[in-house]
């Protein structure tokens, strides 16, 4: 296991309210996937599961897949299902 990764996570809409910030700086284990990050997010902010809020995760401005491995310069974003238009 190498050093943990420090990543930036932007939060929008209800996720911004639950986390209390529009940007988290977070150390996650090196080699973590998007799916593993989702687990960390739900553990740190229990309101996500309590409200049964689906969370979408983007990596560098594109929707991410659960198996994508997070890299050091990645910018993640988490948000609920969209409702524009």
């Amino acid at each position: 296991m190498t050093a943990p990764l420090k990543i930036s996570v932007r939060c929008f809409a209800r996720l911004r309210e639950i986390t209390g910030t529009d940007q988290l700086i977070w150390e996650i284990p090196s080699g973590a996937t998007i799916g593993e990050f989702r687990g960390l997010l739900e553990a740190r902010f229990p309101d996500i599961l309590r409200e049964r809020l689906p969370v979408l995760i983007a990596r560098n401005g594109q929707y991410a897949r659960e198996e994508d491995v997070i890299e050091s310069a990645d910018e993640l974003a988490c948000f609920p299902p969209v409702s524009g238009g």
Binding site: F12, A13, R14, R52, L53, P54, L56, A58, Y63, A77, F79, P80, P81, V82, S83, G84, G85
Partner: peptide, 30 residues
């Protein structure tokens, strides 16, 4: 294009109701 915009463009609507409450709208959730 309108259908696809409503499915994937990351924009969110928060409604402020006449009864004093407010809700984020999450279509397809819950």
């Amino acid at each position: 294009m309108m259908t696809r915009i409503k499915q994937s463009v990351p924009i969110w609507k928060k409604e402020y109701w006449a009864d004093g409450g407010s809700d984020w709208i999450h279509p397809g959730a819950g």
